[in-house]
Computed example of a mutant assay.
Amino acid sequence: MNIAFSPCPNDTFVFHAWVHGLIPGAPNLDVTYADIDITNGLAASGNGPEALKISYAALPWVLSEYALLPCGGALGRGCGPLVLTKNSAADAQEPSVLSGRSVAVPSERSTAYLLFRLWAAQNVPGGVGNIVVMPFHEIMPAVRDGAIDAGLVIHEARFTYPTYGLSMLTDLGNWWESDTGLPIPLGAIVARRSLDLQAIAGWTRASVEYAWAHPEASREYVLSHAQEMSHEVAQAHIGLYVNEFTADLGDDGYAAVAALLGRAAQEGLVPEVDLALLR
Rank of each mutant, 00 (worst) to 15 (best):
D30P: 03
P7H: 04
C8N: 09
S6M: 01
A26N: 12
I38C: 07
P7R: 02
W18R: 02
P7N: 12
D30E: 04
F13V: 03
H16C: 02
F13I: 05
F13M: 09
D11T: 02
L29S: 02
A17K: 11
N40G: 15
G25Q: 12
F15G: 01
I38V: 15
S6K: 05
A26Q: 12
N40H: 12
H16M: 03
T39E: 09
P7D: 07
A17P: 14
P9D: 06
D11M: 10
I38G: 06
T12R: 11
G25T: 14
H20Y: 08
G21D: 10
N28D: 13
G21Y: 03
A4R: 01
V19N: 14
A4H: 03
L29K: 04
N28T: 12
L29A: 08
N28E: 10
D35G: 09
S6E: 04
C8S: 05
N10S: 14
T39L: 09
I23K: 05
H20R: 11
I23S: 13
F5T: 02
F13E: 03
P24S: 13
L22H: 12
C8R: 06
V31I: 00
I36A: 04
A34G: 08
G25Y: 08
L22F: 09
F5K: 02
F15C: 06
A17Y: 12
A4F: 01
D30K: 03
N28K: 13
T32H: 08
P24N: 10
T12Q: 05
C8Q: 08
T39F: 06
P7W: 05
T12D: 01
T32S: 14
T32G: 08
P7F: 01
I38A: 12
A17G: 12
H16Y: 15
A26V: 07
F13R: 05
F5G: 00
D35I: 11
P9G: 05
P7C: 09
V19M: 14
C8M: 11
W18L: 11
V31K: 02
